[in-house]
Design a binder for these strands. Structure first.
Length: 447
DNA sequence: ACTCCTTTGAAGGAA
DNA sequence: TTCCTTCAAAGGAGT
């Protein structure tokens, strides 16, 4: 992911806010019919988070289509020239990571031969197998590459050793085998009888907005502040009515962290505006917390989470987010553009409402967690966007090919079982695409 | 009660 | 300029 700073947007505001917005499309399905993707696709995604070999068996053939991601310099607004994406051969059977969106050099859809898993220790230890969420669900390959970066593997392995798998499924069982009714029943048997809660089914997809929003003492105002897609839509997102007018008062705009703050949010005192006359430390402690505006992906998540939860009956946000992350990448440019535009509007409105606010103001708010994260090695953190981008594109710090991804060493990857699709050497990801400019995405070639 | 997990994107500061 | 870090949402699960 290009590391797009939007400082210009933040400083200048206005329409140029979106100038740095970008629409990235790591397209594995070019039909632009994501909206039509029904629950079965989602279920497949779910299963793809869990199982690899299933896909191998089912897919039979690797994704051999050349995925040519068109480089598109057009800004977010408007000029999407949808690249010609060759549909994923398995588009009708969307396997996400399960069916690698990109081919692997070993000719299989699976980047990691099953035979290698044991060698890599993935199948060892407390059911930590490829099918174990601790090694699979909790550590899917990168969105584009379908390759778990080594550091991520290590991280997850370490995590798996340090703590029990996040999504423990019966050992060896197929956690979310949604590919067939039988398997679905199996899956249902693993869950509580409310696996498919009637409420969810009967009510259909829970409307993400505004009903799904937490209704706290300040929730309404918070969501007004939040410019939720419903309230602040007007973008043709189908998310809700037109852009909601700004809240009546600044006090309405202050919100708190969802959980840690909800505890104290019951007291309206915390909702006092920052410009309150009292300015002592005590007051600063109660200083309202202005949340960051949601970015495009967050908006997408908020919208789609309830839907995914209803369809998958998954509730673990980590798993849901993985699904959403993949779906995000599978969105068409147009679809993503809507969210980028919405995010741009949120940022713009946020800037207007809080001219002096800085994201830095919120640093340290959840100090403990952040400190602990800081303690961990950066490789365990999943890296920043650029790092992730490099992991995906196989770029090193000079935006050259990472060794493991370089053409010269691709065979190593193959032999190591980490087959991957590398960007076409002739078109390395330009550095410009990493910072502040619309994405220039590499052309992928079959290895 | 608190923290972690997990995702992408934005932003700010450090190097 | 590049890189790193933090935060935004969410809720189950672990400590």
């Amino acid at each position: 992911m290009p590391h797009a700073h939007s400082s210009s947007a933040a400083s200048s505001g206005g329409d140029d806010l979106g100038s740095t917005d970008e629409v990235k499309v790591f397209k594995d399905e070019g039909d632009g019919e994501d909206e039509k993707r029904s629950s079965e696709n989602l279920l497949e995604e779910k299963s793809s988070l869990i199982d690899w070999t299933e896909s191998e068996e089912k897919s039979g053939e690797p994704y051999s289509g050349k995925l040519s991601v068109k480089s598109d310099l057009s800004p977010v607004f408007g000029f999407f020239s949808p690249g010609k994406f060759e549909p994923h051969p398995a588009a009708s059977f969307n396997m996400g990571y399960l069916m690698a969106p990109y081919p692997y050099p070993n000719g299989g859809a699976h980047p990691l031969p099953v035979s290698m898993t044991g060698k890599m220790g993935l199948s060892a230890g407390g059911g930590l197998s490829l099918f174990c969420p601790g090694g699979e669900l909790g550590q899917p390959p990168p969105a584009h590459m379908g390759i778990p970066p080594p550091y991520q593997l290590d991280s997850k392995l370490a995590a798996g050793l340090a703590r029990t798998p996040m999504y423990p499924f019966p050992g060896g069982t197929y956690p979310y085998p949604m590919l067939s009714p039988e398997m679905s029943q199996v899956a249902a048997s693993w869950h509580t009888p409310s696996m498919y809660p009637i409420s969810s089914a009967a009510s259909g997809f829970r409307s993400p907005y505004p009903t799904s929003l937490p209704i706290t003492s300040s929730s309404l105002s918070s969501e007004l502040y939040r410019f939720s897609p419903t309230l602040g839509g007007g973008l043709g997102l189908g998310l809700g009515p037109a852009l909601v007018p700004p809240p009546h008062s600044k006090a309405d705009l202050f919100t708190h962290h969802s959980r840690s703050q909800e505890k104290g949010s019951s007291s309206s005192s915390a909702e006092k505006p920052a410009d309150s006359s009292a300015s002592n430390n005590k007051e600063q402690n109660k200083k309202p917390h202005i949340k960051k505006p949601l970015n495009a992906f967050m908006l997408y998540m908020k919208e789609m989470r309830a839907k995914v939860v209803a369809e998958c009956t998954l509730k673990e946000s980590a798993a849901i987010n993985q699904i959403l992350g993949r779906r995000w990448h599978s969105l068409s440019r147009e679809e993503q553009a809507k969210y980028y535009e919405k995010a741009r509007q949120e940022r713009q409105l946020h800037m207007q409402l809080y001219p002096g606010w800085s994201a830095r103001d919120n640093y340290g708010y959840g100090s403990k967690k952040k400190k602990r994260k800081k303690d961990r090695g950066p490789a365990e953190l999943g890296g920043n966007n650029l790092k992730k981008c490099r992991a995906r594109y196989g770029l090193d710090q000079q935006n050259q090919w990472c060794k493991p991804c370089s053409p010269e060493s691709s065979s190593v990857m193959v032999s190591g079982g980490l087959g991957l699709l590398r960007p076409e050497p002739a078109t390395p990801l330009p550095a410009a695409s990493l910072v502040g400019s619309p994405p220039q995405e590499p052309t992928y070639v079959n290895l």
